[in-house]
Amino acid sequence: MSAQNPSASAAVRRRLGALALHPLTLALAAAVALLALGEAISPGFASPGQIVSQLTIAALLGMVAAGQTLVIIGGREGIDLSVGGVISLCAFVAGNLMAGTDAAIPLALAATLALGFAVGLLNGLGIVLLRIPPLVMTLGMTGVIQGALVILTRGVPSGRSAPALTALMNQPLVAGIPGVLLLWAAVALGVCLLLHNTAFGVRVYAIGANPEVARIAGMRPERIRALLFGLSGMFAGLTGFLVLGYTGSVFVGIGLQYVLPSIVAVVIGGTSLAGGIGGYLGTIGGAITLTVLQSLLITLDAGPAGRQVIFGLTLLVLLLLYGRQRGLRG
């Protein structure tokens, strides 16, 4: 039968090939391989309980990386280094608003999201209006936030998570799955729909791929870019809120450990740092792979410095690979 319709079977084969090469597939394959390696070295590494707890950590990374994905796709050297500062700030604010009571959760969540969005929008306005490079703007913002936090907290951990938030992070909700994973699934669905099935998504990719073409087609690249930074701040704010639930209370530098991994997750996920191509599915795979890699390094007792080195190297190697790929295509 298939011989009668070679073009159809060719199309199917092409689709399968594309699926096999999708960054999500590749990243998940890498994660499974790492899990198997971990299980071999230290039995129990890949137990269901362990996998769930690793996914919980991956969820936190995945949510910051959602914002990072958006600003990177938006192009013009889009990158958000301030996510660490925003996570710390929002965790601090949420912890103090909540102060251990469930009733204050809605207010704390709303305040956190709004604050994250506002900080991100400030980044965006500095970048598009004052033409400050994103790297510089968001790094500067990190400095300002961290400084403010030191003044606000005087360096002492403060704030307290509410029981319900802590449960969301740590207790199974349905079928042994904690609420945070369901939340991540919802966020993932939302981000993917936004990027692929809305006019806004079409615009985001267009301004990343060729801002001048986008402008001539009637889009407003500056406005969209500023908004993307706002969204990145909002996702970082959400992450800060959840981090509070995960750790219970907040110290000043709690968010900084997410900055580099959030970028690496995006890049492993196949989104080009040059903008205009990529997507959130790949980033999800990247976040999971990175988290498993991190756990494996802890199991192997590589130490925090060693972990940083490995992340840096991973980023470099991937950039080299993707860079070469672009060269081939171009």
Binding site: Y205, A206, A209, N210, E212, V213, A214, I216, G276, I277
Partner: peptide, 9 residues
Amino acid sequence: GRDGVALLR
């Protein structure tokens, strides 16, 4: 290249 198409899209 300048005004017309977003090549990667």
